[in-house]
Nucleic acid binder design. Structure first.
Lengths: 254, 254
DNA sequence: CGAAATTTTGATCACGTTCAACTTCAGTGG
DNA sequence: CCACTGAAGTTGAACGTGATCAAAATTTCG
């Protein structure tokens, strides 16, 4: 993807976050113009850099164009729990920017490229164009759906099931923004990251990954994951793709 | 609380859901009128009755006035994971009503009294009064914050820490709608429910509860929980109350 | 009062953590 | 180009926690 293009008004409609929003609601040219005008600038941060720090006040929305990050909590005992993975098309700042003080940290796992606007400006737009308030709701609800599955994962699924579910979810989400093949995708996470997402130790995660390979359910080549048997994985991980309804538009509107 | 009062326009301003929304944004009389007009009716369902069934299409918002419910996932192997607890002031239908098909079930744990409106009507109101779209966002974000902590709980906290955190969270949420004392509250959950919320077996949960009592951190009398040492519990459970920012209102907006 | 649900206690055992060592790989400078 | 370094992946052994199963005690409710 052309770097200049994405930052420009021309490339805006192809921005993965805009593409994702477009699945919920039809945005016309003036909607996109108004949204684009909120953007204060484009940023690229290096991997391992912190975007949001637990306890800070944060008031921005970052529309991720490229790269991966994680939102996580660090506990006293040094353990880390990753709450959610941030990927292209996701919006950093949900939910941290809505709290008086962020209750989690967000760190880039790869180099991360995103467009930033202030939460106040976005809310201002919501008053002028109510559909954007609903877009924000829909974005939050999609994250709710993801976190709900994540709770089921860490709470009641076995380590093997968790891993299967996690990989299927990553594939599903990446596919929604055109970053995954039919049954394969690149996942630039170390096993430590995956372990912290699933609440597992690195050695055990490693064994579960080895088991999925040994059982011929998937193949791993470097950072590339290839599903060898999608339906077996889906059964194993209790995975069911979730579909958000579209945002209703009243007849007398727009 | 007077039953007729709550269902009437007069009692509407004191409805716990309205009170909760009032913490995010000031609603004037006409806002409340418009919201009240969406209500299709009041319902009371018996405990153990299902409100939403996994896989069904559901398109309503239920503003809970009284009682408790749980949103949960039932797995093949019979295990149940409770995703979140629903209490007075909460809105059932977030997130289920936004999906093509509900991905979880919601069941009343006690008798449950609530007011219902359709999601389409609410969205319609959001177009006429954009502040309600933001209210919906804020409600979803608050649930996001709760679920995020829940993931940390099941993923990386020890059973004792989990339980401490859970009880503090329940107390905190109940206090927000005036249903808890300074350091005590009624929690009408069996240990099976709490275990399914925390991803623990009933016997082990029972032992952890006994330990909290033995360590003089809390006392239990029937369904009443009394914190004997709040700050010790907060340290144990890594608990920090979260505060949502208020919804900004632009100056040029009525 | 009897039946059912819930809480409590105990014994056993499997699973997953912990700790440690070793291997492999990627990146860097000699 | 290879030696060196640190990070990431892999494997093994020992231990402890929390699940499981079972049964008793207690409470709730019809």
């Amino acid at each position: 993807m052309n770097e200049l293009l994405s930052a420009s008004r021309q490339g805006w409609a192809r921005h993965p976050a805009v593409v994702r929003i477009g699945r919920y609601i039809d945005l016309d040219r003036s909607d996109l113009d108004d949204l684009y005008r909120l953007i204060e600038g484009q940023t690229t941060i290096k991997k391992r850099k912190e975007l949001i720090i637990d306890g800070d006040r944060y008031r921005k929305l970052c529309f991720v164009e490229d790269g991966f990050a994680v939102r996580y909590k660090l506990l006293r005992n040094g353990k880390r729990q990753i709450i959610n993975v941030v990927m292209p098309g996701d919006v950093v700042g949900i939910p941290s920017s809505f709290l008086e003080r962020a209750a989690w940290s967000v760190t880039a796992v790869t180099d991360l490229k995103f467009q930033v606007c202030s939460i106040e400006d976005f809310v201002g737009l919501c008053y002028r164009r109510p559909q954007f308030g609903l877009v924000l709701t829909w974005l939050a609800v999609q994250e709710l759906a993801i976190l709900s599955e994540h709770i089921t994962n860490t709470g009641r699924r076995t380590p093997l099931e968790r891993l299967a579910h996690f990989l299927l979810e990553m594939h599903n989400r990446l596919a929604l923004v055109g970053r995954a093949g039919e049954a394969s995708f690149d996942l630039p996470f170390s096993q430590e990251v995956i372990g912290d997402a699933l609440g597992l130790s690195v050695p055990h995660l490693n064994r579960m990954l080895a088991k999925l390979r040994a059982d011929r359910l998937l193949a791993v080549d470097g950072r590339r994951i290839v599903f060898a048997d999608v339906s077996a994985l889906e059964v194993l991980g209790h995975f069911q793709p979730m579909k958000l309804a579209r945002i209703p538009v009243p007849h007398n509107f727009g």
